[in-house]
Amino acid sequence: MDENVTQLLRKYQQGNAQAEERLWDAVYDELRTLASHRMRRERSDHTLSTTALVHECYLKLIDQTQVQWESRLHFYAMASRIMRNILVDYARRRTAQKRGGGAPHFNLENVQLSDSEETAHLFIALDAALSQLAEMDERMAKVVEYRFFGGMTEKEIAELLDVSARTVRRDWRKAKGWLARALDEDS
């Protein structure tokens, strides 16, 4: 338990930009360590989930007796962005290493998840499409980021964004539609 990170989270919530940067670094380091540790240890792939990883990170870094529930959501939100960052970063390394980059086309619906290379390419493309989506509709992109990369529940997202769970679900479905189309068109 790191008292400092707990304090950082509180300052970040109060809008302290410096705290945000330092919190980002702390969470980034912890998530990356956890991720690689997990990877080494747990070879059976069904034992991990994004949700579990993010929650574990939270439990390790934050003294829960010192913060309120909303803080947890803000933490998850940041962790979602970081997870996106880490996964896409690894994906870039993976594709650069094996193929030298470049992805021809994708179909989000028929992904061979067992094909690590194709999946890695897909993540990179998804990351770009998500950034485009954010320009059109920021909330929709956030919903995807929180849910897919952060493993947050609809309920948590709704609370964080201060909208109804129904709105979150609708945003999610629309976003799936937009992203599928965007990746398809890029091909």
Partner: peptide
């Protein structure tokens, strides 16, 4: 699950 999708190449 994002993590599980990424699992295969993350692993490597």
């Amino acid at each position: 699950d994002a993590w599980q999708c990424a699992g295969t190449w993350m692993q490597q």
